[in-house]
Design a protein around this nucleic acid. Sequence first.
DNA 1: TTAGTGACACTTTTT
DNA 2: GTGTCACTAA
Length: 655
Amino acid sequence: MTPPLNAAQRDAVETLSGPLLVLAGAGTGKTRVVTYRIAELVKHGVAPQQILAVTFTNKAAAEMDSRAMSLLGTRWRERPEISTFHSLCVRILRRHIQRLGYTKQFAIYDRSDQEGAARAALREVQAPSESLRPRDLIGFISRWKTASVRPVEAVASVRSDKEHLAALAYARYQRALKAAGAVDFDDLLLLVEELFERHREVREAEAARFRHLLIDEYQDTNGPQYRITKSLAAAHRNLCVVGDDDQAIYGWRGAEVTHILRFERDWPDAKVIRLEENYRSKEGILAAANRLIAFNRHRHAKTLRATRASSEPPRMVPAEDEAAEAQWVVGDMLRQISAGRAAPRDFAILFRTNEQPRAFEAELRRARLPYVLIGGYSFFDRKEVRDILAYFKVVVNAADEVSLLRIINTPPRGIGVAAVKALMDEAVRRRAPLWDVVASNACDLSIAAAAKEGVRTLRVLVERFRQRAARESPLAVATDLVQETAYRQEIERLYREPNERLARWSSVEEVINSLAGYVDRQEQPSLAGFLDEVALLGREDTSDKEQRLENNAVALMTIHAAKGLEFSQVYLVGMEEELLPHRRAIETGSAAIDEERRLCYVGITRAKDHLTLTWAQERRRWGKLRSSTPSRFLLELQGETKEAPAAVYKPVVAG
DNA sequence: TTAGTGACACTTTTT
DNA sequence: GTGTCACTAA
């Protein structure tokens, strides 16, 4: 079934030592090369656990892991370490973070926790609520962090009032996180970098764990990731990086294509191998992709050759609005499924933003087609889920101020806004974490008696469960915790509708199920470990129920999330100006548009057999109907431009 | 202090 | 459409 490796692929697989750069276009068997290489290394006597492969997403890591293990066979108890940069860094920090003055039980702040911390920081610098939103502050901070700019340097380098405010808040934010024993996603990388810089023996010990290092999607590494890679590979020099500058889609996150472009300068003896034969997409699809990407000026010219003949061009389908678009796409799938020509698992619906899948989900449910939504606003963003997790977090790490503030009066226990303010003031006065004030029962504070009683109840609750968490199974602790917080009654109180009550409570149950799944998987499960996993895997649910569903379900995801994956049939939806390319990119200028074009290219090249591009003539946004223009990329992939269109569009009219 | 109401802003993309 | 915030009544 699988074709034998071609000469270039074989060369990449069999070059076992020294620095190696694999420049691999879309669909040229990149993942296959990496997994075969892992197997080849093991065949030559390298122990699996001495191999570290870094991927960009958890999904890609899981996929690579399962492929590698099926190549290696079951006789290996040890596994190669295949993970994302962030997971790798968490493991390193769990071993050494105390050296940087953090507590061992540090919490990982996800986006929503970050927002809480950002809001508090903005309050502290007394920013008027309109001048800078928490979201924007996080953007500034993240950019500074990936560029290794410290708060003091940020203050010195600002160019506008807004930036000045952000720099001040950045300092507060960082101090607050450290006091709370918390790190954000950028810190995970930065702290590892700092650890390596300041503690040579740690760097050497961590580097010595592995003898071979493979980095996938190298074009998307940012500064800290680039330096961590170098540190880990410096001694053994067995570094293999794989990437494609045409698929660089994370520039907004600080990724720099220059890292892959300067690999040969960093490692002068590096061997370079190019993979240019595309095994994935049929010729018609690849031709469209090649025509599109040719519109990018700054790129390494390369010719991607199709090996799968067929000149069938991508279909282009207009729809009236987003509902009609969804209806047509799902209808098209149903026709093929009932004709026996395809199964749900053959299809993927790819989109630019996370607001788009709604219409498709509704339509798929109506058609009773199984589907899996990867990522997106979902489970772990729900209020009740966040509340329960915040309880877990406080039990694990009481210094976690964002989580403590979240649950301090949820469900209501008499600690209102006034009481919280008094507690916070006292914490500032004592220069101590908020929890210390709570733990001392706040008896001498002038707050209402009911609030004092509430504080006492909370303290007793948290302390009791903290003791239990140290000894008992996480599952028992979590179940009882949910029980004792009376969260179910809180849901009954808050929501009147029976359906909503049911839905809200079932997501609480789902948290417990997810914890149960984690406990089953882990040898030494702990509440803290579960929280790490939730923060890192985020929305991706690895429970086997999900897995089974995925065995034959339509996949829905953003183009970003689809990177590295392939599907028989791809529907690239919402091909409209202001969506792809996104409005923000259009406002920013041509470099940003180029990244959007690469994104479109990534989307197109996910398709093996059939590609369909759709757009809506009108789209509802925040309840308002707005008309939209077809994306310029639709023209470009037919080899035309906005300036000189040969025909307006050549849509295949929906049947 | 909490509950209820209405105005409001919000939507790139991810670890 | 949805979650958050400010305001008011009890």
